[in-house]
Simulated scan of single mutants.
Amino acid sequence: MAAAISRVFPNTQHRLCQWHMIKKYRDELKKLYKEHEGLKIKLLTVINHPLTPIEFEAAWSELLTEYGIGENDAIKGIWESRHLWVSAYLKPLYCGRMTSTQGSKSVNKAVKKGFCNEEDMHE
């Protein structure tokens, strides 16, 4: 999908949904949460709070050091894709108020209702 989006919409940037990213690693993260008390809250705070990429990266590094989880595959996967879904990296982008799949579904519904002819959509 990312390749198609960049080809069809060259002036846009493909993003990933935070909810889907966390869900992708849910099982591994659950194991970490059981092993490390307080990790879930701190991880979500690090992901959601920093205002800049520098702040995010500093907080992330601190989190890895505090919990000793830097070699975990889920943590590595979250880190490797951070530019596509962590809000600190996406602030300069206009996203039409979409920050999740739910937001995109709401916008899709509004566009279909107000701007698309139902008959044209089935051709």
Rank of each mutant, 00 (worst) to 15 (best):
E62H: 11
I54N: 01
K31C: 13
T65D: 05
K31E: 15
I47E: 01
E71T: 07
K76V: 11
A58E: 14
E37W: 13
E37Y: 11
A59V: 12
N48E: 08
E55D: 13
P53V: 05
E66T: 15
K42Q: 13
K30D: 14
E66P: 03
K34R: 11
K42Y: 11
N48T: 04
P50Y: 09
N72Y: 12
P53E: 06
S61R: 14
T45K: 04
K34M: 13
G38A: 04
E35A: 15
I54F: 13
P50K: 09
Y33N: 00
K40M: 10
A74N: 02
E57K: 00
V46Y: 00
N48Q: 15
L63I: 10
L64P: 02
K42H: 08
E35C: 14
H49F: 12
G77W: 08
A59L: 08
E57F: 15
H36E: 03
K76G: 03
P50D: 00
A59F: 06
K40Q: 12
D27G: 13
H49M: 11
E71R: 05
K40L: 07
L29C: 04
L43T: 01
N72Q: 04
F56P: 05
A74F: 03
E62K: 12
S61C: 11
L51R: 06
G68V: 05
Y67C: 13
G68P: 05
G68F: 09
N72I: 06
A58T: 15
E37H: 14
G38D: 04
G77A: 08
Y67P: 00
E57R: 05
F56E: 01
E62C: 14
I47M: 10
K40I: 04
G68D: 02
L32N: 05
K34D: 10
L32Q: 00
N72E: 03
E37K: 12
G38Y: 07
T45L: 01
W60N: 02
L32G: 03
F56M: 07
E28Y: 04
E55M: 14
K34N: 09
A58Q: 06
I75G: 08
E66W: 08
I47L: 08
V46G: 03
E55W: 07
N72H: 13
I69W: 10
L43N: 00
K34T: 09
I69R: 00
H49E: 12
N48A: 14
E37S: 13
N72M: 08
K30L: 15
E55S: 15
G70L: 06
T45M: 14
W60A: 07
H49I: 06
E37R: 07
K31T: 13
Y33F: 15
L63R: 03
T65F: 10
K42S: 04
G68Y: 03
D73Y: 07
D73F: 09
E28F: 12
K40W: 04
Y67R: 07
G70M: 06
H49A: 10
Y33A: 13
I47A: 02
T45G: 12
I75R: 00
T45V: 11
N48V: 02
E57W: 05
S61M: 11
A59C: 10
E55Q: 15
I41V: 09
I69Y: 02
K31N: 09
E35P: 06
L43F: 06
H36R: 10
H49S: 08
G68E: 01
K34Q: 12
E28G: 15
P53W: 04
E37T: 12
Y67E: 03
K30I: 10
E57I: 12
I75A: 01
K34P: 00
A59W: 07
S61L: 13
